[in-house]
Design a protein around this nucleic acid. Structure first.
Lengths: 246, 246
DNA sequence: CGGGAAATTGATGACTTTCAAGGTGTGTGG
DNA sequence: CCACACACCTTGAAAGTCATCAATTTCCCG
């Protein structure tokens, strides 16, 4: 099947001048270490909306970092039922799911046209061997993934549907704010279907919750645009004092 | 408060002769690497039933490996609602939850009197720097934890309560079998309360499901003793063809 | 501008939780 | 060694939350 040419692009800047270098692997590395890192980084990966970066059962190719766009990771059972695991945004790393067996355990699908950097697996091992900074940052990133999954489990296991949405919106708010964007108004990268799945509920339920929370003056949501109208009420609903560390 | 002396003990054998060395860090290491590893291992950690190995917000002390007993990890929200994250059995590693910030993000509590080995965090970093085998095995173990969390999310998000129990029992069966024990008859290390929490349901619901599955001839459960009567039906219920890799 | 995907809304029912009560087993102290 | 207390587990009835089915409506893309 012929594909239209990718017409989204971005000039490949250096890690040192990348706006995401404080949330990506370069974080905490010395200039010389960054220079070494950079030799192994392929900055030309492009994935079109709805295409897969990798599939479950694929052999691992490398570790990826998102420059722009968004990726969802998900896992499916044999009936084809999908569970969305995480939404990855610019600066996030992907590929740790293959650490166990060298085979990816989940699917990674682009929610929008997405640009990524890649470190081939063997280079990654090599960098970990040579650079303590990379090793540390890698552990950091892996730990972030584990912590995230733990939070999600807590949310799915203990919260009701509206509390789960509140928690999610606050996470997103916190995320955007920490990146210098508005924490009160932002655009979600995913459709309702994926979001409801991630939050462990039916699309219809999500829709109803949104309507209800809008009526109650907590938020406004028009398609993917989110406006948080009453941050305090939202936090109260989420029972959230848990702060999110980078 | 005075504690009774620990009267459970085990002579500290070498990693090389430990029966768990093929599922623990020594897996895949050369004899000389194991010797180096062993220098940094403290094999004298004892935790009594119901005591904590560490708490959420504790600074990380090291990475632990379970020799005997069982540990549950769990996370709580500010209302004190707990979500059990994982049950750790002999050979399992703990402590990755602090990789992100150096602070533990969950509680680790002994379900029974438990013996562990410990590698202090700085030694662990040092070992990762020097020994590629340790580095690889560590990645392996971390990947296992990530894969496990993903499976649990899929189960919580997509399965009904009875399917979740079936999935869990098959996991345990598979686990015990791979360790040379019976996969058909085994003893669970946790009470109903913890299990139901882990599976995202009320204790009463779990109890009812067990009764129903016993009536239907799938299993027999007397307290913590599990007997799987009809493995095929159980697998069918769990929709499981997903095999579990070590 | 039309077709179709995405999102909302309503009605109904299933599954699960909650509240309540009773049963069973274990461990400790007399 | 027995008895009592307590934790653990099971069962029942009622209530709630959420999913499913169905019908529209809205919006996006070609």
């Amino acid at each position: 099947m012929l594909e239209k040419p990718n017409n989204f692009s971005q000039k490949s800047i250096s890690c040192e001048s990348c706006s995401l270098n404080n949330v990506c692997i370069p974080n905490g590395l010395s200039p010389s270490e960054i220079a070494e890192l950079e030799i192994s980084v392929d900055k030309t990966i492009k994935i079109k909306k709805k295409d897969a970066l990798y599939h479950s059962k694929d052999e691992v190719d490398g570790i990826y970092a998102i420059k722009s766009g968004a990726i969802k990771t998900s896992i499916s059972n044999e009936d084809g039922q999908e569970q969305v695991l995480e939404f990855h945004l610019p600066g996030d790393l992907l590929g740790f799911d293959a650490f166990n067996s060298g085979i990816h355990s989940c699917d990674a699908t682009a929610l929008e046209d997405t640009l990524l950097c890649k470190i081939a697996m063997e280079d990654f091992h090599d960098l970990c061997a040579r650079l303590s900074g990379v090793r540390k940052e890698m552990m950091h990133q892996v730990g972030k993934e584990i912590s995230h999954n733990q939070s999600l489990l807590l949310s799915l296991g203990q919260q009701q549907t509206n509390e789960r949405l509140a928690t999610f919106l606050l996470e997103m708010s916190s995320h955007f704010q920490s990146r210098g964007f508005s924490g009160q108004e932002f655009i979600l990268p995913m459709p309702r279907q994926d979001l409801s799945n991630y939050l462990g509920m039916a699309v219809e339920t999500l829709s109803r919750i949104i309507s209800r929370m809008t009526e109650d003056g907590l938020i406004q949501m028009d398609r993917r645009l989110v406006i948080i109208s009453d941050m305090e009420k939202l936090q109260k609903l989420a029972h959230t004092s848990t702060s999110y560390k980078k």
